[in-house]
């Protein structure tokens, strides 16, 4: 059975759309158009409503993500400690805007609202690894390992 059908089967009884899309995200890293169409068909929910949901919530993405996901915390604590300049630098260095993926599909840059590790702000997370108390020069060092 196809992956998507297995996920749908898991949720079909309850018809809980949000957890279903979360599982698709976890499996594919994004929501491919064909999976959304399949879900609409199988659960008998209008395609427009599934699409609406997929674009409303921030944790869903309709485009594939890069190999490395770089998240910059833009919570208030990180903001007052200078996080916007970290984002600007990453945008400059990677040549993309926050929310985009580099052409070589290596990096996706995103900003998040708060990771709750305010003591470590400004905070950058690359593939689940936390880099706390970051500044512009430390960021260079950190990025070096991933740019290779």
């Amino acid at each position: 059975m196809r992956k998507i059908d297995r996920i749908i089967k898991r949720h079909k009884k309850k018809g809980a759309l949000v957890p279903l899309l979360q599982d698709v995200m976890a499996e594919y890293g994004y929501l491919p158009q064909r999976t959304i169409e399949r879900i609409s068909q199988e659960l008998d929910i209008p395609l427009s409503q599934v699409y609406s949901l997929a674009t409303f919530y921030k944790s869903f993405s309709l485009t594939p993500r890069g190999k490395y996901l770089i998240s910059v915390c833009l919570g208030t604590a990180c903001h007052v400690r200078g996080a916007p300049r970290i984002v600007e630098k990453l945008e400059r260095d990677l040549g993309i805007r926050a929310g985009e993926t580099t052409k070589d599909s290596k990096f996706t840059l995103e900003t998040v609202n708060c990771l709750g590790a305010c003591a470590l702000g400004p905070l950058v997370v690359i593939d689940g690894k936390y880099f706390g108390r970051i500044n512009l020069s430390r960021l260079d060092e950190v990025l070096k390992d991933y740019l290779k």
């Binding site: 833009l74 919570g75 208030t76 604590a77 903001h79 609202n113 708060c114 709750g116 590790a117 305010c118």
Partner: peptide
Amino acid sequence: DEGDPGAFMDRS
């Protein structure tokens, strides 16, 4: 659904 940026007591 603790959404306020800079707040993390519910999580803790």
